[in-house]
Simulated assay, not measured.
Amino acid sequence: MRALSSPQQMTAVVQAAAAAGINHLETAPAYGPAEDFLGTALAQVRNSGGEPDGGWVITSKILPGCSLEDGQRQLHGILGRLGLTRLDNLAVHGINRPEHLDWALDGDGAAILQWAVASGTVGQIGFSSHGDDALIDKAIRSGLFGFCSLHLHLLDPQRLPLARLALDQGMGVMAISPADKGGRLQAPSTTLREDCHPFQPLALAYRFLLAHGISTLTLGAAHPKDLELAQALRAADDPLSRQEAQAIEQLEQQRHGRLGPDQCHQCRACLPCPAGVPIPDLLRLRNLAIGHDLMAFAQERYNLIGRAGHWWEQDNASACNRCEACLPRCPHSLPIPDLLADTHQRLQAAPRRRLWG
Rank of each mutant, 00 (worst) to 15 (best):
P33T: 08
G260T: 09
L185E: 00
I140L: 14
A43Q: 12
S189H: 04
D70H: 11
I78Y: 01
H332D: 14
H100Y: 05
S177Q: 15
A349L: 05
H100C: 03
R346F: 03
P278Q: 08
Q15C: 10
D195L: 05
L219N: 09
F145C: 02
S142Y: 07
L339T: 07
G306W: 09
S149V: 07
P98M: 05
R86Q: 15
A134T: 12
A341K: 06
G143I: 11
V45S: 06
D70I: 11
G260F: 02
D88H: 13
C326N: 06
G94K: 00
S142C: 08
R73F: 07
L68N: 07
L90E: 00
L82R: 00
R242D: 15
W356C: 10
A20N: 03
P178D: 04
L355V: 14
F37D: 03
S189Y: 02
K225D: 15
I22Q: 00
T218N: 08
A325Q: 12
D132H: 15
M171C: 13
E99A: 14
Q243A: 15
L68S: 05
G55F: 11
P272K: 10
S48W: 05
N303A: 09
R86I: 08
S318R: 15
R86C: 06
A317D: 03
Q114E: 13
P157M: 01
A41C: 05
L84D: 04
Q250I: 04
S129G: 11
L233P: 01
D168M: 05
I78A: 00
T121Y: 05
G170D: 10
S177E: 13
L210P: 00
H265A: 10
A341N: 10
S177R: 06
A110G: 12
A91G: 08
P201D: 01
S119Y: 11
W103Q: 03
T190L: 05
Q169V: 06
P278D: 04
P188A: 04
D237V: 11
G172E: 03
N47T: 06
P7F: 11
H344L: 03
F297A: 02
M174Q: 10
L42F: 14
D281Q: 14
P161C: 08
F297Y: 15
R352L: 13
I22H: 03
D53Q: 10
P188Y: 02
G172W: 01
A275R: 11
L304G: 09
R164A: 14
R164Q: 15
A221C: 08
H93V: 02
G54R: 08
L90W: 00
R159Q: 13
L150S: 02
R193L: 04
Q314M: 12
S215E: 13
R141Y: 04
E194L: 10
G107H: 09
L75T: 06
D108N: 15
W356R: 07
S333N: 14
G183Q: 01
Q72A: 04
G120D: 12
R2M: 06
S119W: 12
R86S: 09
V117Q: 15
P351R: 12
L82H: 02
R86M: 11
L251A: 02
C270E: 07
P278M: 05
A12I: 06
E228K: 09
A166W: 02
Q299Y: 05
R81T: 05
A43F: 06
D338I: 10
C323L: 12
A275K: 07
G49M: 06
L282M: 07
L288T: 01
D338V: 13
H332E: 15
G213Y: 08
P272Q: 11
A221W: 02
W311C: 13
H100K: 07
Q124R: 15
Q124T: 12
